[in-house]
Design a protein around this nucleic acid. Structure first.
Length: 411
RNA sequence: GCGAUCAUAGCUCAGCUGGUUAGAGCGCCGGUUUGUGGUACCGGAGGUCACGGGUUCGAACCCCGUUGGUCGCCCCA
């Protein structure tokens, strides 16, 4: 007995209406990205593990248990890409893309993270991604945010979604704020949740967005980044918010919105919905001026965002699958060749067509009716054996169909 | 890694407190109607009740374990 292999945990086979929604997201993204003049890039699906581990630092669970890593036959550690940014940063350095700076690039495709699947989170998932590399100005942040907002509008999901915005300041501001947070939380250490006590050592900024109610009273009164921002950092953030206002993009300040990794500076943002359970972030990103150096490159300012295609697709209105323009029904097997010929002719004329010529001859018309076609063409043989057809129009393009019929010579 | 919850036909699900041959709808296949119209009716195929133990005269149902799905925690680049 042969056992059918099962799919890998956390992978998905996307089909039908869901696949249509998925394709709608990527097609819309491609259209928008061209409007904003972002250049398309295609990136490898795997890289040397260092590409990701260096950029992430050694701190978190992320490297130790969240990456899909393996050794190749030469004993080199490789990792399936868990994000686009690190690979694009690597390419910027190894391929000399500095010559194109400031460089606006966009891509989409599969990513891999070794996690327990839950709603809107999979081990193989898919993202769209946009990055601006080599631009230190807040205008780059604004352009990305306006583009993201535009995309969500075009997808028809902007209504339930809000843009949450924060600044982490420049390197110095961020360090001072972080030190103040550690000092503050350390004073309340014993009253924090176990998880947050742990975070105090590993990733103190993350205490701010803890879900544990025991932490809430302390996070509310925690030191705020605003009190630690340098004048330059304040000015940078002000230019971002002014730009958003000028472009008519609504935003709200979320001082608890943080990034755990050290290379993030200045702007951090997430577009959030309450329609997806625990996984409310629909699109997120920020400025990562410190990343290039961790990969051995020169200091290079950069900012970008990514969004999960599956999550976006879940929010998109049910599109349904497209209905055929015409179905050709062979009601008499003697007309099979004409069915094939006419269907081919319909398709060449740009009409989405289906041929029904199998199974019980009497039931073929029923099958056609059930597909909600805009037109049904039934083929039968006359007494003389010549092809006869009957056409039922239900919203279809009768002129186009007639033109195909007139131009067709029966077999 | 941790927790909750679920698993019956290809799909969606019923199945009483443990009781004899496990059901429906949809889908699939065949038949009836030979019709300018059909979304109907009849029939058929299809099940190791996730898997492995246990309790019992008897288990889809109760107990234990395993596997898998879902949702959440941790993490979220």
């Amino acid at each position: 007995m042969i056992k059918t292999p099962k799919p890998i945990r956390g992978t998905q086979d996307i089909f039908g209406a869901e696949a249509e929604a998925f394709a709608f997201v990527t097609a819309t993204f491609e259209r928008i990205r061209k409007l904003y003049r972002f250049r398309r890039v295609e990136m490898p699906v795997f890289e040397k593990t260092e590409v990701f581990s260096r950029s992430l630092g050694e701190t978190t669970d992320v490297v130790s248990k969240e990456m899909y890593s393996f050794e190749d036959r030469g004993g080199e550690s490789l990792t399936l890409r868990p994000e686009f940014t690190a690979g694009i940063a690597r390419a910027y350095l190894t391929d000399g893309w500095k010559q194109y700076a400031p460089l606006k690039v966009a891509t989409h495709g599969p990513l891999f993270r070794y996690e327990r699947p839950q709603k809107g989170r999979y081990r193989q998932f898919h993202q769209i991604d946009a990055e601006v590399i080599g631009a230190a100005e807040p205008q780059a942040d604004v352009e990305l945010l306006v583009m993201a907002d535009h995309l969500l509008r075009e997808l028809g999901i902007a209504d339930g979604v809000t843009l949450q915005l924060n600044t982490l300041g420049d390197g110095e501001s961020r360090e001072n704020w972080r030190a103040a947070l550690v000092e503050y939380f350390r004073a309340h250490r014993d009253e924090l949740s176990e998880d947050s006590q742990d975070r105090l050592e590993r990733n103190p900024l993350r205490i701010l967005d803890s879900k544990d109610p025991r932490d809430k009273p302390f996070t509310a009164d925690a030191p705020r980044i605003d009190d630690y921002l340098s004048d330059a950092a304040k000015d940078f953030f002000a230019q971002v918010t002014e730009g958003l206002d000028a472009a008519g993009v609504a935003w709200e300040r979320n001082p608890a919105l943080v990034r755990g990794l050290d290379y993030y500076r200045h702007t951090a943002f997430e577009f959030v919905t309450d329609r997806l359970g625990a996984q409310g972030t629909v699109l997120g990103g920020g400025r990562y001026d410190g990343l290039m150096e961790s990969l051995g490159g020169a200091a290079t300012p950069a900012v970008g965002w990514a969004a999960g295609i599956e999550r976006l697709a879940m929010l998109v209105e049910e599109l349904g699958e497209p209905v055929p323009d015409i179905i050709v029904v062979v009601e008499d097997d003697a007309m099979r060749a004409d069915g094939v010929g006419l269907t081919a002719a319909m398709r060449r004329a740009g009409l989405a067509s289906e041929l029904i010529a199998t199974g019980s001859a009497r039931k073929r018309y029923d099958k056609a009716v059930k597909q909600n076609a805009k037109a049904i063409l039934a083929l039968t043989a006359g007494d003389d054996g010549a092809m006869q057809h009957r056409l039922r129009i239900d919203g279809g393009d009768e002129a186009a169909i007639d033109a195909v019929l007139k131009g067709y010579s029966p077999n």
